[in-house]
Amino acid sequence: MSLESVRSFFATHAPEIEIIETEQSSATVPLAALAHGVDPDQIAKTICLRAGDVMLLVVMSGNSRIDNKKFRSVFSAKPRMLSGDEVLAATGHPIGGVCPFGLSTELQVYCDLSLKDYPEVVPAAGATNAAIRIDPDRLAELTKAIWIDCASRTDSSAG
């Protein structure tokens, strides 16, 4: 069902983008990097958070993590991770397949500047074995995302 909402999103907004389905899981950054033959930082992971009363999505490079101080400076609130059930209810996508496309509810999307390190990134596409390849600026354009700096980088060898 979630994969279908992503298919529908791309059929309407960007029919030239192909959804890639793999036999193996791409539910984590290391698995996705392996499945798609890319550096883990090239994986565009989508995190569903709450800032105060506002639920939002942040898309960032695979080995990045939310920097609480930077997040607070952007949103004037501490980030709060949501439970798997809350994420599924808000996005319509299961953990491991969360993406900013084909959402079940309207959420503001933010793209972290860490995505700009690569000309092409690989976000999930609504299932734990589905993804797309996309230019980061095109990702932001399609999702009406706002560019922010809220990530801290970790070592690429950490997974």
Rank of each mutant, 00 (worst) to 15 (best):
R65C: 06
A33H: 00
T46Y: 07
E23R: 10
R65T: 14
A33F: 04
E23G: 13
V29E: 11
C99M: 07
I132T: 04
M60P: 03
V59L: 00
A90L: 12
S73I: 07
C99Q: 03
P40D: 04
T143N: 01
L56D: 07
S73A: 12
C111F: 10
D135N: 15
A89H: 10
V87R: 06
Q24D: 15
I47L: 15
R138M: 14
P40L: 11
S26N: 13
C99W: 02
V74H: 08
E86I: 10
D137V: 09
S26T: 15
L57S: 01
A125T: 11
V58Q: 06
C99T: 12
I132F: 01
D137M: 13
F75S: 00
F75G: 00
F101W: 00
R133V: 02
P119W: 01
A33V: 09
P136L: 11
N63G: 12
T143L: 12
G96H: 06
G84S: 14
V54K: 13
F101T: 05
P100W: 06
V38N: 02
H93D: 08
A90D: 03
H36Y: 15
S73T: 11
V74K: 07
P119F: 00
M81E: 12
L103W: 02
K116G: 03
S114F: 07
C99F: 06
L107Y: 05
C48H: 08
K116R: 15
G84Y: 05
L34A: 15
R138L: 14
E120H: 11
A140T: 06
P123M: 05
M81T: 13
I95W: 02
S73P: 01
Y110T: 00
V59Q: 01
D41Y: 12
V54W: 05
S104D: 02
A131I: 10
P40A: 07
S73W: 01
A125Y: 11
C48N: 06
A77T: 10
L139G: 01
G84D: 14
T91S: 02
P136D: 11
P40E: 12
E86L: 06
S76E: 15
V58I: 15
A35N: 07
Q108G: 00
G84A: 14
A140G: 09
L139W: 12
P119L: 05
V58S: 08
S104C: 13
A33E: 04
P123N: 03
V122Q: 06
P30K: 10
D53S: 15
G92L: 04
P94L: 11
P136N: 04
I134G: 02
F101C: 04
G62L: 04
L82M: 13
I134C: 12
D137W: 09
A44G: 03
L115T: 04
E141T: 09
E106F: 01
L49R: 03
L31R: 14
L49P: 01
M55K: 15
D117L: 12
P94D: 11
M60Q: 08
N68Q: 13
T46C: 05
S114I: 11
V98N: 02
I66G: 09
Y118K: 10
N68S: 14
I134L: 05
M81Q: 14
